[in-house]
Design a protein around this nucleic acid. Structure first.
Lengths: 226, 226
DNA sequence: GATTGAATCTTGACGACGTCAAGATTGCCG
DNA sequence: CGGCAATCTTGACGTCGTCAAGATTCAATC
């Protein structure tokens, strides 16, 4: 995937294989090899640098060292590329939650709190993906169900963690209420932390203190469940 | 102002002056009167119809019945118009919170829950503005402090409501923790409700049940404060 | 009340963007 | 080895945001 540009601006930088033909084409090969993956990597880098509103398919192609129309053979349109990135983000979100839970042992409340911490940790580590996942245009007419089903796994984890705490015999609306509260809390906290405008009142606190504040809020919720 | 396209929508209702000159220009006047307000109304309508990613300054101008370059005299650029809309949204958010609180009486916990309900109610009534306010590009170089300070009032209300419940003598980090939890909960719930992808598990419930679930989550939080 | 300067709006242009169509290049399968 | 499909490039079109220059109107001054 040719070290998606950056260093030399003009991108390409892909001198991994010396130009074979002549000096006409600094680019290595006509066929890229795995342009789809390269475009995803370049797209994520673009997203991190320029944000969702400044995202450009042409710039992504440029960064990947291909022409502006090359992406069309791998993604139907720009939204399809972004949707694929969002799916990738949800996979990482699930990984982050599972990683924290695995380290949290077996106690249900500890596992629920860990899931929440993982959720927030992901948002802080990849704010550009987080924003894309929850604010990007809804992928409407894309092939496959992945874009629509991607959030489901993360919710399922959170739901399972809540159910494990509640035990059996809880009315359906109460379950929904507590799942909504759990998701709302961690999602809101995550958003609060990555948006500067929203994080105003957390400014005075240092990094460690914020961590403790967020973890405390989540643990207090887990403890408050009946 | 020629009933911007859609006749129904744009409000403004500015057909006050019949076209005076000739049939050449269906538009009434060269000078609009209050184009700034008309652009804000048209921009909000565009936002509601096309979403943030589909927003277009030219389409907004078209809807307002002016040329594509007319907005430049009232907003430095497209982001400035969106920033003004975001400020407008924060004002409405504050109004929604205050309205609920005013109807909630004097009991601190009831007032806190009311503030949260108002927050969610605003998001549901104006999802396009909500998304803009919290996901739009951060207005960087805009004149005036309004865009940066707009979220402050809403946070101040929530903060005040939390403080009123806690009473005096609570450590600073605990205060921050509970404010973060309150904001995170209501913000996350609001987001949960307006994003279809996220609201999957709430689908089976009807409108009234959702209302109860959200209100229940908020009230349980208010009741859980020490 | 006419004149003049400033504010407002229009027209036209430019570069960047997303997307489509057609041609060039390459890998692969027979 | 030949041909076909996949891949990538080039070129074009319409739309977008923004700038510059001209047209029109308002308002303040004389």
């Amino acid at each position: 995937m040719a070290e998606n540009g950056r260093d030399g601006a003009a991108g390409d930088g892909g001198a991994e294989r010396a130009g074979r033909r002549s000096a006409r084409r600094p680019r290595a090969a006509y066929h890229h090899g795995d342009l789809r993956a390269a475009l995803l990597a370049a797209g994520e880098a673009e997203l991190a640098e320029s944000g969702l509103s400044g995202f450009s398919l042409r710039a992504t192609a440029r960064r990947a060292g291909v022409s502006h129309a090359a992406p069309a053979h791998h993604f139907a349109n720009a939204d399809a590329l972004l949707a694929a990135l969002a799916v990738l983000g949800f996979e990482r979100l699930v990984s982050a939650m599972e990683a924290e839970m695995a380290a949290a042992g077996a106690e249900p409340r500890a596992r629920l709190a860990a899931a929440g911490r993982g959720y927030v940790a992901f948002a802080r580590s990849s704010p550009h993906l987080f924003r894309l996942m929850f604010f990007g245009k809804r992928p409407q007419n894309l092939p496959g169900d992945a874009p629509r089903e991607a959030p489901g796994r993360a919710f399922a984890i959170l739901r399972g963690a809540v159910l494990a705490v509640q035990g059996a015999g809880v009315p359906e609306t109460e379950i929904a209420r507590d799942i909504a509260a759990a998701w709302g809390l961690v999602h809101g906290l995550a958003h609060l932390l990555i948006e500067e405008a929203a994080a105003g009142f957390l400014r005075p606190f240092g990094e460690a203190e914020r961590e403790a504040i967020v973890a405390g809020a989540i643990e207090r919720f887990a403890a408050s469940l009946p």
